[in-house]
């Protein structure tokens, strides 16, 4: 049993016939072919699949594609053209905020929402804001520094 869906991903309309049970992360990866969004767990714990759904960060493994039909999704590929970087991307690079890079897209998408809600977070607030995203390489410290740096560059302080 499939149903038609249409989701605007990074400003581009993506239509498809999908099973009702399909997870949004699989639509993004398989149907739209955008593999920057990752699958790191199956219990909504790790945050590697974080995207923005109608401007709010969401774990796309916990949303059905059909629920997102008619919505607008922004993935890591949509926050910059890959050449002129988003300030968070630049800050992750400058602060060594990544090692293997697998958690990074989700981390950046979660951090982006964090800074929208709190443009000048303390390091403690950044740590609390990112506790839904797991990184196994960095010990989080340089991720916190990156978000702090980006907040400064984005005018938060």
């Amino acid at each position: 049993m499939t149903v038609p869906v249409e989701i605007t991903i990074n400003g581009k309309a993506c239509a498809g016939e999908v099973e009702e049970r399909q997870l949004l992360v699989h639509f993004i990866r398989e149907n739209a072919g955008l593999t920057g969004t990752k699958v790191g767990c199956d219990t909504s714990q790790c945050g590697t699949c974080t995207v923005q759904l109608d401007g709010v960060s969401a774990k796309s493994c916990t949303v059905l594609t059909v629920q997102a039909s008619g919505s607008s999704v922004t993935t890591i590929e949509g926050i910059s053209d890959g050449v002129d970087l988003h300030p968070l991307q630049e800050a992750f690079w400058n602060n060594h905020g990544l090692q293997c890079g697998f958690c990074t897209p989700g981390m950046i998408m979660a951090a982006s929402e964090l800074l929208r809600n709190n443009p000048s977070p303390t390091r403690e607030e950044i740590r609390h804001g990112l506790e839904g995203n797991i990184c196994r390489c960095t010990g989080y410290q340089n991720i916190v520094s990156a978000v702090e740096d980006a907040a400064g560059k984005m005018g938060g302080r």
Partner: peptide
């Protein structure tokens, strides 16, 4: 800073 990072921070790396 690391030379592998641009592809990783933009979601363009291929696992």
């Amino acid at each position: 800073r690391r030379r592998e990072d641009p592809r990783l921070i933009t979601g363009r790396a291929s696992y």
